[in-house]
Amino acid sequence: MNIAISASFLPHDDGEAALAFYRDKLGFELRKDVSFNGLRWLTVGPPDQPQTSIVLTPPGADPGITDDERRMISEMMAKGTYAALLLATKDVDATFEKLQATDIDIVQEPTDQPYGIRDFAVRDPAGNLLRIQQA
């Protein structure tokens, strides 16, 4: 079998803030911008990896989710406990320096983890945790 990751989903609660983060700060390209019933989905991804995308979705857009569940999702997003993503870069320290120069929310500076990975952590505008590790 040869199975590849096509897309991963992360919630967003502000399309413009999400674009400013993923496109303008991380350097991803905007691939799709879809609106439906007052909600907005954004698809972004690294320019050199057209086969891999992140779909930024409205939280709780699934019609089967109750209002209580939507509130819970919003509360978890606000705390940064709802979603996470691992990214990789060839130079963690240089990437950290570049991102630190912006108004990005730094959670952890570059650290040599006990499990053998050097990484750092940031939060996107919706509160999603992104760990960026040495490739």
Rank of each mutant, 00 (worst) to 15 (best):
I3A: 13
A4R: 14
I5A: 10
I5T: 12
S6R: 12
F9K: 11
F9W: 13
F9V: 08
L10I: 08
H12M: 15
D13W: 06
D14Y: 02
D14E: 05
D14Q: 06
A17Q: 14
A18D: 01
A20N: 14
F21L: 04
R23A: 02
F28D: 08
E29W: 00
L30A: 07
K32H: 12
V34E: 07
S35R: 15
F36A: 13
F36S: 15
F36L: 13
G38C: 06
L39P: 00
L39H: 11
W41I: 10
L42F: 00
L42Q: 01
T43D: 10
G45D: 03
G45P: 08
P46V: 06
P47M: 00
P47I: 01
P47R: 01
D48V: 07
Q51P: 03
P59T: 01
A61K: 02
D62P: 04
G64N: 10
I65D: 09
I65Y: 11
T66K: 08
D67Q: 14
D67F: 05
E69Q: 15
E69M: 12
R70F: 04
S74N: 13
E75S: 13
M76D: 12
A78C: 06
K79H: 12
K79W: 02
G80W: 04
A83E: 08
A83C: 12
A84D: 11
L85A: 15
T89L: 09
V92A: 10
V92D: 07
V92F: 09
D93R: 11
F96D: 06
L99T: 06
L99A: 06
Q100T: 02
A101N: 10
D103L: 00
D105A: 07
Q108Y: 04
E109R: 15
D112W: 00
D112R: 03
G116W: 01
I117Q: 11
R118W: 01
D119C: 06
F120R: 05
A121Q: 11
A121D: 12
D124E: 01
D124Y: 03
D124L: 00
N128F: 01
R131I: 05
R131K: 10
Q133C: 13
Q134A: 05
A135H: 09
A135G: 14
